[in-house]
Design a protein around this nucleic acid. Structure first.
Lengths: 242, 242
DNA sequence: ATAAAGCGTTACAAATTTATGACAGTATGA
DNA sequence: TCATACTGTCATAAATTTGTAACGCTTTAT
């Protein structure tokens, strides 16, 4: 997937080295050599991941990480800290500030890429702006639209209208298809952490989502797993064999 | 699976950091900042795993670990020690006390999650979300589905529908295949702690499970061991032919 | 052989879990 | 500001799951 990575690093040599490697791996790369500049870039384009040097000329990396974590728009962006030192206190401070991982300089490109991959896999599937297409649905995160392939006329796409929450819910379920999610997992990851909402509310939103999908004969994509939660699945629900 | 993890750690910053990461990974988290508090929590809810700080204000982590190991109800819980030091003597002491693994501070969330996974795989196979495949059955905890390889057509997989308890029961039996479990062991580990249910109820659920497996000619996977309990076994039970 | 113990099986009512529709409070946008 | 769209919560209905009791069969021990 086309991941946009912001590198915040003041040593140009290192910055370019990293950029080169990331580009080679197929990522979009943005570079900044100060927290100030990084902030401006973030305002323009929201990166999918930030590689953040520990020591920056104008502000410590930690501080910048905290800043990112504080704002709604950026708080979900994974951060990997780049640090020359391996002091215990530094690591703890970095992780506390909300870094997802850290890597100590010098590091091999291979190691960096592996960590990036791991962090993305852990944090992002539902955030990557990739179009998800399955089960006759086509969800486009960038345009915030969902289309349905008419079952009789495979060429024709009709759009369906979802409310904000239904959209996020469907997006999440599709991003992790076939997997069961408990209600609280859904609340955490679709509504957001720390929300204070009843579990049962999820049912209602599932219901709303299904109702919309019913209109286009796709309601069986969202399945109930009794005793556990819900699942988006392309496979048929149950096939008792005799 | 939803693993409940108890964090016993007095430094709040670290405690929260760990909690955040575990939650993000889909675990249920309990926190205690002293052995005293931890003990109370354990009395209430039995965690599936304990992350235990080496140094605690009221009692050393080691001592608490020993306490857990001494009592029947808690002695099977895996323990991972969090320690700042890596002295050989400490390791030995920790192992003696019954710790399953160590992790030295500071550690990355990635590392912590990896160790948790490893320990769970080793100690509580039914909690690790791994697909179990044996005897022509394929159970996937993440999608919460069980498939059967049709015996005549090995390519074809058909799904079988299980109720919540049957699913957990089968999962447990498969995770510890070839091993006999008494009814009360099953009640403890499949139904949960502190349940007040008749032993014979297990029979009924075994019956229900078998009935479903009968439909796909797999009923002999769940075997009775007279005088003891039940067992999931791929080997044939005993077939004296006359 | 006979009694006792251990299991398998079934039926059923109670308990739990979901689905659904309605409602009121908020946000959003014209 | 007003109208419309969204949300979260409830109450109630519907559906499934569960634990027990009861009865009969098989194995084991006396």
């Amino acid at each position: 997937m086309a991941v946009t990575i912001l590198i915040v690093e003041d040593e140009l040599a290192i910055q370019e080295l990293i950029a080169l490697n990331l580009k080679r791996a197929g990522h979009m790369v943005l570079c900044a050599d100060s927290a100030e500049q990084a902030k401006k870039m973030v305002n323009n384009v929201l990166p999918d991941l930030v590689l953040l040097d520990w020591m920056l000329p104008d502000m410590s990396g930690i501080e910048f990480a905290r800043k990112l974590r504080r704002e709604d728009r950026t708080k979900a962006i994974p951060i990997i800290m780049l640090t020359a030192r391996i002091q215990e206190s530094d690591k703890i401070a970095g992780l506390e500030a909300g870094a997802d991982d850290y890597i100590t300089k010098p590091f091999s490109p291979r190691e960096l890429l592996a960590r990036i991959k791991a962090v993305l896999r852990r944090r992002l599937p539902e955030m990557s702006d990739e179009i998800i297409e399955m089960g006759g649905l086509r969800l486009d995160p960038t345009t915030h639209r969902v289309h349905v392939y008419a079952s009789n006329e495979p060429e024709k796409l009709s759009e369906i209208a979802l409310g904000p929450t239904e959209f996020r819910l469907l997006h999440f379920l599709m991003a992790y298809k076939e997997r069961v999610h408990t209600r609280s997992q859904l609340l955490d990851r679709v509504w957001g952490d720390h929300v204070f909402i009843e579990d049962r509310t999820v049912d209602v939103h599932i219901r709303r989502l299904r109702k919309i999908l019913e209109a286009v004969d796709k309601e069986n994509l969202v399945q109930t797993v009794r005793g556990t939660g819900y699942r988006f699945s392309v496979e048929c629900n149950e096939e008792s064999v005799e």
